[in-house]
Design a protein around this nucleic acid. Sequence first.
DNA 1: CTACTTTCTCCAGTTCGAGGACAAAGGGGG
DNA 2: CCCCCTTTGTCCTCGAACTGGAGAAAGTAG
Lengths: 396, 396
Amino acid sequence: MRRMTARPANAHQARLLRLLRDGGPNSRAQLGDQVDLSRSKLAVEVDRLLDTGLVVADGLAASRGGRRSHNIRLAPALRFLGVDIGATSVDVAVTNAELEVLGHINQPMDVREGPVAVFEQVLAMAAKLRASGLAEGFDGAGIGVPGPVRFPEGVPVAPPIMPGWDGFPVREALSQDLGCPVMVDNDVNLMAMGEQHAGVARSVADFLCVKIGTGIGCGIVVGGEVYRGTTGSAGDIGHIQVEPDGRPCACGNKGCLEAYFSGAALARDAEDAAHQGSSPELCTRFENSGALTAVDVAAAAAAGDATALDLIRAGGNRTGQVIAGLVSFFNPGLVVIGGGVTGLGHTLLAAIRTQVYRQSLPLATGNLPIVLGELGPTAGVIGGARLISDHLFSPA
Amino acid sequence: MRRMTARPANAHQARLLRLLRDGGPNSRAQLGDQVDLSRSKLAVEVDRLLDTGLVVADGLAASRGGRRSHNIRLAPALRFLGVDIGATSVDVAVTNAELEVLGHINQPMDVREGPVAVFEQVLAMAAKLRASGLAEGFDGAGIGVPGPVRFPEGVPVAPPIMPGWDGFPVREALSQDLGCPVMVDNDVNLMAMGEQHAGVARSVADFLCVKIGTGIGCGIVVGGEVYRGTTGSAGDIGHIQVEPDGRPCACGNKGCLEAYFSGAALARDAEDAAHQGSSPELCTRFENSGALTAVDVAAAAAAGDATALDLIRAGGNRTGQVIAGLVSFFNPGLVVIGGGVTGLGHTLLAAIRTQVYRQSLPLATGNLPIVLGELGPTAGVIGGARLISDHLFSPA
DNA sequence: CTACTTTCTCCAGTTCGAGGACAAAGGGGG
DNA sequence: CCCCCTTTGTCCTCGAACTGGAGAAAGTAG
């Protein structure tokens, strides 16, 4: 099926499309209040958008005291695909033009199988969503991958946990396969955009979004825009040193944060604790399944296991130590904690908060909320939809 | 004397003024090459600027193969004042509209005497520059202070080393006294703007500018613009912890970078070394003057004193450790080292480089120059002039 | 039913800008 | 010194775009 290829012709139209995306259906009059255009100019631009089919009439709005206005909204048939490729699983979701999730699938998977295998699976998941009647096709897709990306080209560069992806033309390949525009970004940046659009970071211009999963990364938002750095590796905080001459890390250095606290490190520490017998709870879990993950630690902690709680607190302290430094440096208006280990919940959050509030200067922490992300796994896919919609809703 | 109060009427004019500021005198044709306006439109805007008096005709340009063009330039009588208030001295300079320094005075001073005393001195220095015939008045002034500033209002907030300045309306007070528009910013940000305009950071969009003086701070430039953070305290890296439970710092915490390496800490370490007799060079210097400063350490190091060199290397390592973290996080295209202790020169730079290149990931450091600032004490004052000119050369 | 509010359309007047034509100014070769 | 080419600057005209007002349409409140 042929999809929409129309694009806004100028900055005004782009602005209007984004307002409709972020604010939902709206009347001409309300739009006029927000964009500072003359009524006539606004009417012309709206008419053109109606001509392109990007927006459609949507009945009458409630009266604001006088004549009721005709609502307009983004075309209800528009569909964006959000794909969040993690180290061990993939999330794929369809959204409408307002970035509301209509359907969401998660499947386990190993990125190390390489791009070809992974995309096969992603395409199958997308097809499944389409087959379930949620979409007749996709007008754009935003993809997140767990590693640095050269953003303009949409190509992963030297991703440590994704051997075989280096230089793979993700954007171009998927654009071909899906038959729609595609944008590719780091998964952490996508999470940041998701929380910004629909989560805790609404209306915050400058914030950090720390994602603790298999690795640790940090999305940086400056003035409402994701900051990616000179080579696209900004936010790669997992390999900041927290302990001189500390534990060896997979990256070759010693004492990296990730060597102490990440899904992998936590699992290893938990297994060690199980072997040493210091934690009955972890021990029984280990005997049941033969291995431990962050989920087990979370469960043990919830059951009140002291060792598990200690592990979480120790990790939270180290993470907090790094975040404290970043807060001093970056002075954000908000810090969001997300990712797989968010299941560790408030124990983790408390440890991080303690460390940050103790180590950073009052001026920077005075009014600084440190909170858990509220979207969980949907943050990434919403961020993906947001990424591609930002691209499509900008002047051609 | 009455000064220029004209301001550009629109974004085009602002753009042209900045081009003339950054590129010097220019012909209409050359400007046209850069701004993507039709010749007629360009001519109209230039004529209007000529009417305001902000720019003037400046003779004929060399031929580019055909008819010679009439150059235009910013009004040669325009004068900006750059003021860089340090912890222990003040720099005041006059520049023309192209931000070339016409006169520069430095005087020792103690910020802790409070804003009133300091401004008296600054005004006297400005008057001296004016009296020497360099300026008949000032069209704007940019002020740097050694602490966080609420930028829009131009008011220092909770500055640790400037008791008595908290909340003092610097911008308003100086604007009254000087009779011209004033902008106030952190001194580190000014240094970053200076190096960006006329120093090593020309044509780099994203970079860090680390200033090591009485304290340690870091200017952050994102997409060519200084980033100041939510409360104006971004870049305050002096109080990042480098040693858990380490030396007590003036801020109340322990193990801050500044407690180990800054003008003050270095002087103290040097005096300790002198007392212990581990360094003959420092010892004799101490006996001569009764106290030691970073300058003495630099001189001793230059003379080959092993203890002094060790002090510098140790400090450089700690600083490098912090910068390595920032590089991983921020992925800048350049790191500039500046400030008072730059006199320590290449020993310091080498220590910092070693640490950063060893600790940060290859993708971030692959093509990352770490260099000394090339403007020295003029970076701050040029940055001040740049700050106010950016303000004045923007649409009213 | 009337007065008032809000929304939307239409229209006329005006401003703005693009682009072509042309004059002015210079270089270089014969 | 003349002719031709290049570059620069100005002028002019046409078309497009924008503003603001008038007024119709569609409500609400009393």
